[in-house]
């Protein structure tokens, strides 16, 4: 992007509210921040209206801190809790409808490739489990079938949280929730495997309990999507409100799930993606047309 869109007309510099001045002076645009740099700069999220202890808010903050080129990233969201955050995010982002995020993203990606053929334009989908695995699954999978160069990130809180705690395809079997009053009768959908079979070049499951790892997989997913093909990242992001856990226990919840083996980190890298990554490691190939020298 032309960084001019985050520079203030000189005549108005004194008048701009502080948060904008901070964004201009100390924002992440054109910098090379990684997830470990959080806290050192003005983040892309201003404030958010999500519940205390929200796993999704935690994931989202880490995702936004892991974008390799925030100045050239357009995010497509979907209906759900996360959509409440996006008005506060310092990027171009689209809320369209419930479930059509990957179809919208396909259109955006194709249009930006036409308009800016020599520039990096990352299109990243960030949506919940209902939007990704249930109502939008056909469009998610079809974007993978078509090998759309977009990264799809699921914020998996294992429920429809915004609508009041209904069971989703990603809920654990047996979970008693609204619309599953006798407990969910089928297992949690194995979407990473579906992604792999559908043509994703890179698939990962992670969680905000390990921010470094989350940052690494998100960054990889976006870089691989830029150069190789579609990618999918699933982030376990528990909902303390609907599962009635303590807001301070969100990370504990994830760690318990890991111990119980009902959640595990996972990473699949296709051969093409692997050679792309090793080329990056060896510094043989730049990450993209204009982000020379960044490491995955």
């Amino acid at each position: 992007m032309s960084t001019r869109i985050v520079s203030i007309s000189p005549a108005f510099e004194d008048l701009m509210p502080n948060e904008y001045k901070e964004l201009v002076e100390n924002g992440p645009y054109g910098k090379d921040y990684k997830v470990t740099d959080l806290g050192k700069y003005k983040e892309l999220i201003e404030e958010h209206p999500l519940c205390a202890g929200c796993g999704l808010a935690l994931s989202l903050r880490l995702v936004l801190g892991s974008l390799p080129s925030p100045e050239d990233t357009v995010i497509v969201g979907s209906t759900g809790c996360s959509a409440l955050v996006f008005p506060q995010v310092g990027l171009h982002n689209v809320h369209s409808l419930f479930g059509n995020q990957n179809a919208v993203a396909s259109g955006i990606k194709r249009a930006l490739s036409l308009r800016f053929p020599d520039q990096v334009k990352d299109v990243v989908v960030v949506a919940g489990d209902g939007a990704t695995a249930d109502i939008g699954l056909d469009m998610v999978m079809q974007s993978w079938f078509r090998r759309e160069k977009i990264a799809t990130i699921m914020l998996d809180n294992e429920a429809y949280a915004n609508t009041g705690g209904q069971e989703s395809g990603m809920s654990m079997e047996g979970t008693v929730m609204n619309m599953a009053p006798k407990g969910k009768v089928f297992p949690k959908a194995d979407l990473p495997k579906v992604a792999e079979a559908s043509g994703c070049a890179y698939v990962a499951a992670a969680s905000p309990s390990r921010p470094g790892k989350l940052g690494k997989v998100v960054r990889r997913a976006i870089l691989i999507a830029r150069e190789v093909g579609p990618t999918y990242v699933q982030l376990l992001s528990p909902c303390p409100t609907n599962f009635k856990t303590k807001p301070s226990d969100t990370v504990v919840t994830i760690k318990t799930r890991e111990k119980e083996k009902s959640f595990k980190q996972y990473e699949y890298i296709s051969d093409d993606a692997r050679s792309f990554l090793s080329a990056l490691d060896e510094g043989k190939q730049s990450e993209g047309k204009k982000s020379e020298g960044k490491q995955p």
């Binding site: 001019r4 869109i5 520079s7 007309s9 005549a11 108005f12 701009m16």
Partner: peptide, 22 residues
Amino acid sequence: FPGPLILWNWKDGIAEKAQALK
């Protein structure tokens, strides 16, 4: 009430317009 198209110095000619408004 200057809006984004004049507040942000996003293309040539904007700074002059902003100054004139000021």
